[in-house]
Amino acid sequence: MKPRQQRMLAVGLAALGIAIAAGLTLRAFQDNMMFFVEVSDVVAGEYPKERNFRIGGLVVGGSMQRDEGSMDINFEVTDTACTIPVQYSGVLPDLFREGQGVVAHGRMGEDNVFQADKILAKHDEDYMAPEVADSLSKHQQDIQEAVVKGAAECRPNDS
């Protein structure tokens, strides 16, 4: 083997070794790499019970209720399969909308209502002008239908 081929082999083997090691490490940390827990997993009871965590999903259309004269807000979050009611008190980010993505940080209450202490809005990868969005309202309808359909199916108290 020529010295150049030897070096090539050495670099190749080292790269392969690193890739395998990294792959195994990532597998081991899989859960910790998740920024939020899916709503279905929370309903199935698969969430950290002893500490705060984040849930992520879509805000169910028509579910938002504001208490008059206070900062209390109630709404529901769904992953289009399951739904969790969320209670929050504070200021909402500008992008918080019904039918749009949301990440809530907090813990599950005894009454199966998620008590959030921080709300973040998550937007999707679609970008369009307002006029286009109006004419494309089918796109919006699809989201809404999925959201409302999901809202009807499973909830934390079922389990």
């Binding site: 790499m33 827990v37 990868e125 970008y127």
Partner: peptide, 22 residues
């Protein structure tokens, strides 16, 4: 793609949609 993230998915060369004038 692999994990849940606050960051939105890819738009430019992937499934996301973006108007041509944008």
């Amino acid at each position: 793609e692999w994990w849940s993230s606050l960051h939105q998915g890819q738009t430019v060369f992937k499934k996301g949609t973006m108007d041509a004038d944008m």
